[in-house]
Amino acid sequence: MYKISLMVRKINVLLIEDDFEIGKWLGKRILELSNIESLSWETSIEKALINLSLNNPDIIILDLKLPDGNGIDLLKKIKKAKKESKVFIFSVSNELRKTCLRSGADCFFDKTTDSEILIKSLK
């Protein structure tokens, strides 16, 4: 008799979201997933850049409108640094979907309709 064990790779997630209610809800949902190793939450580009200089998350969930700048600029910096991280844009700025994907985003999720799809994509 053979025993088969499936190894589930745990992932590290960096959430960059300045809206407290959205961040709290999303963080709670992410931490409910069994494949999450860690979750960091930053509320600005400045704090996100510090976090990224210290850590290499598997997945970055990035809002586009942040208090200290534009998430697309941060996306370009992440891709230019050749980080292995996948970047998921989570924004209400659906008109910027094509720009984000051309700039290197791996996925784009609309906050008004795709929050459950985002959670499922992390599994």
Rank of each mutant, 00 (worst) to 15 (best):
M1T: 15
I4A: 13
L6S: 03
V8I: 14
R9P: 03
N12P: 02
N12W: 01
V13Y: 04
V13K: 00
L14F: 11
L14Q: 08
I16D: 07
E17A: 01
D19A: 09
F20T: 14
F20R: 11
K24L: 05
W25E: 13
W25K: 01
R29C: 07
I30H: 02
E32T: 13
E32N: 11
S34K: 09
S34V: 08
I36F: 04
I36G: 02
E37H: 08
S38Q: 14
S38F: 00
L39P: 10
W41M: 07
E42Q: 14
E42S: 07
E42N: 14
T43K: 11
S44E: 11
I45S: 11
I45V: 15
E46S: 11
I50T: 14
N51A: 15
L52M: 10
P57H: 06
I59G: 08
I59Q: 11
I61N: 03
I61C: 00
L66F: 10
L66S: 09
P67H: 12
P67S: 14
P67C: 12
I72P: 01
D73R: 00
L75D: 02
K76G: 02
K76Q: 12
K77L: 12
K77S: 10
K77C: 03
I78A: 13
K79M: 04
K80T: 15
A81D: 14
A81W: 11
K82V: 03
K82L: 14
K82G: 04
K83H: 05
K83G: 05
E84V: 07
K86W: 10
V87T: 08
F88D: 00
F90V: 06
F90I: 04
V92W: 05
V92A: 09
S93P: 00
N94T: 13
N94A: 08
N94V: 15
N94I: 14
K98M: 12
T99Y: 05
S103A: 14
G104A: 06
G104K: 01
A105E: 03
A105Y: 02
A105K: 06
A105R: 04
C107A: 02
F108S: 07
F108K: 03
D114H: 07
S115F: 05
L118C: 03
L118G: 00
L122G: 10
K123W: 10
